[in-house]
């Protein structure tokens, strides 16, 4: 694991370790919560729990190792990566909002219909992101967004709903 020292900061090691640890915890919980997997009546078949146990063990140990290395590094280099966590959360704010709005988008497609919902979704986000990109005035953004949303939505509608007949919305 020595290779990781140079490439990744200590906070990154810990964060990556925690992320992978989360997976293994969820995995172990689910595995323990399924009694059918622990019944040992499969004869020569090693059973459905063998590979999950092996994989989860590797994952848990690996995640621990990452966290451990990160912790060790932190003790060596005290000031590395200050405000790391705050930066992580702040950076993921927009993508997080986007993900949530995607879920709202797909739930509302059933209610509102594909074309109106997609139009709302695309115009809103194209506009927000356009404002964020900052090299256009608000008024010059509108025709571009309208055009972009129109082309995007009609293209998707034409290919998927019209040509292929996907029953969405």
């Amino acid at each position: 694991m020595s290779e990781n020292h140079s490439r990744f900061g200590p906070k990154n090691q810990i964060a990556a370790g925690l992320f992978l640890m989360l997976w293994s915890v969820i995995g172990w919980l689910s595995l323990i919560g399924s009694p059918a997997l622990w019944v040992n009546e499969y004869g020569v078949d090693p059973g459905p729990s063998l590979l999950p146990i092996i994989s989860l063990t590797i994952l848990s140990l690996g995640a621990l190792a990452l966290i451990g290395t990160g912790a060790l590094q932190t003790r060596v280099q005290q000031h590395a990566g200050t405000r790391y966590w705050a930066m992580q959360i702040k950076g993921s704010l927009m993508p997080g909002l986007f993900a949530i709005s995607l879920i709202i988008y797909i739930t509302l497609i059933d209610v509102v219909g594909f074309i109106p919902m997609s139009a709302i979704f695309s115009i809103t986000w194209m506009y927000i992101l356009g404002v964020k990109s900052g090299n256009r005035t608000y008024s010059s953004l509108l025709p571009l967004v309208a055009m972009g949303a129109f082309i995007g939505v009609s293209l998707i509608y034409f290919v998927f709903l019209y040509l292929i007949g996907v029953p969405i919305g």
Binding site: L144, I151, S154, Y157, Y162
Partner: peptide, 19 residues
């Protein structure tokens, strides 16, 4: 602007298809 006159026909076609 990236979207120039060539798109006009595509847009008209799309309107017809949607409607």
């Amino acid at each position: 602007m990236a979207f120039n006159i060539n798109y006009r026909r595509l847009v008209i076609a799309a309107v017809i298809i949607i409607l």
